[in-house]
Computed example of a mutant assay.
Amino acid sequence: MARKFFVGGNWKCNGTTEEVKKIVSTLNGGDVPSPDVVEVVVSPPFVFLPLVKTTLRPDFHVAAQNCWVKNGGAYTGEVSAEMLVNLDIPWVILGHSERRSLLKESNDFVGDKVAYALAKGLKVIACVGETLEQREAGSTMEVVAAQTKAIAERVTDWTNVVLAYEPVWAIGTGKVATPAQAQEVHSELRDWLQANTSPEIASTTRIIYGGSVSGGNCKELAAKPDVDGFLVGGASLKPEFIDIIKSAEVKKSS
């Protein structure tokens, strides 16, 4: 069965109430392919989750940008998976490079968070990716495999997991992995899944690309056989996000 194209929009730490309403209005008016062709998930900051959940078109879904590794309790500033489930938020992004680098989240910690979120019924966009130094040292796949291994060791059911390959050197920099570079890593990641999980998991798990995706480069990236969609940062706050969603048509016709 073909993997359904997936487009996620990570709004990061951006927005006011009025700005969020404007973004949602643009998305609600966008002419995009049907949910049979593309799955769309947007991820606003925690404080705007209820607003976006109640005003966003029903064929788009909502994700949190993070959640805690355990149930609630004495964890000031954290949000639990149980709270997200209570708010009927279906998705969460975990292991984003900004949390790995700025907040020192380790591979094992990210793996534990993924396992806990899945156990509570959330669907997970799990992020992996290398720094510029690691790429230049030729250790891209070593780094990405180690990050993926920490997740795979803790996941028994991959049905609700999307892997996001985000080269750190391409996030918010304007630099983009070439379609060939993205395809190479995605293909190697799929080979890793085949060798370390199962052929079925490797063939059905969606591996999406993140890193300065725009309306200008999305179609060429989408045409690659192992690129199953995108996790979009800055461009997800702009009208061009609609064009990125439409790039699913490229995959459908290829």
Score class of each variant (00 low, 15 high):
Ala2Lys: 06
Trp11Gly: 02
Lys12Gly: 06
Lys12Gln: 11
Glu19Ile: 13
Lys21Ile: 06
Ile23Val: 10
Ser25Val: 00
Ser25Arg: 07
Asn28Gln: 10
Asp31Ala: 12
Asp31Phe: 06
Pro33Asp: 11
Ser34Glu: 14
Pro35Gln: 01
Val38Leu: 10
Val42Pro: 11
Ser43His: 08
Leu49Thr: 12
Leu49Gln: 06
Pro50Trp: 03
Leu51Pro: 02
Arg57Thr: 14
Val62Glu: 07
Lys70Leu: 04
Lys70Trp: 08
Asn71Asp: 11
Gly73Ile: 14
Thr76Phe: 00
Ser80Gln: 11
Ala81Arg: 10
Ala81Ile: 03
Met83Trp: 12
Leu84Gly: 03
Val85Lys: 15
Val85Gly: 07
Leu87Gln: 14
Asp88Ile: 14
Pro90Asp: 13
Ile93Leu: 15
Glu98Lys: 08
Leu103Tyr: 14
Asp108Trp: 07
Lys120Ile: 00
Leu122Tyr: 05
Lys123Asn: 15
Val124Gln: 02
Ala126Asp: 02
Gln134Asn: 01
Gly138Phe: 08
Gly138Met: 03
Ser139Met: 11
Thr140Cys: 07
Val144Thr: 09
Val144Ala: 02
Arg154Phe: 07
Asp157Tyr: 12
Trp158Arg: 10
Asn160Asp: 15
Thr173Tyr: 03
Gly174Trp: 07
Lys175His: 13
Pro179Glu: 06
Gln181Tyr: 13
Gln183Arg: 00
Glu184Asp: 15
His186Asp: 07
Ser187Leu: 12
Ser187Ile: 09
Arg190Glu: 08
Asp191Asn: 13
Asn196Ile: 07
Ser198Ile: 15
Thr204Ile: 00
Thr205Trp: 10
Arg206Leu: 11
Gly216Tyr: 00
Asn217Gly: 13
Cys218Leu: 09
Glu220Leu: 14
Val227Phe: 02
Asp228Leu: 13
Phe230Cys: 06
Gly234Ala: 06
Ala235Lys: 10
Asp243Asn: 13
Ile244Asn: 01
Ile245Tyr: 01
Ser247Tyr: 02
Ser247Thr: 10
Glu249Asp: 04
Ser253Asp: 05
Ser254Cys: 12
Ser254Lys: 05
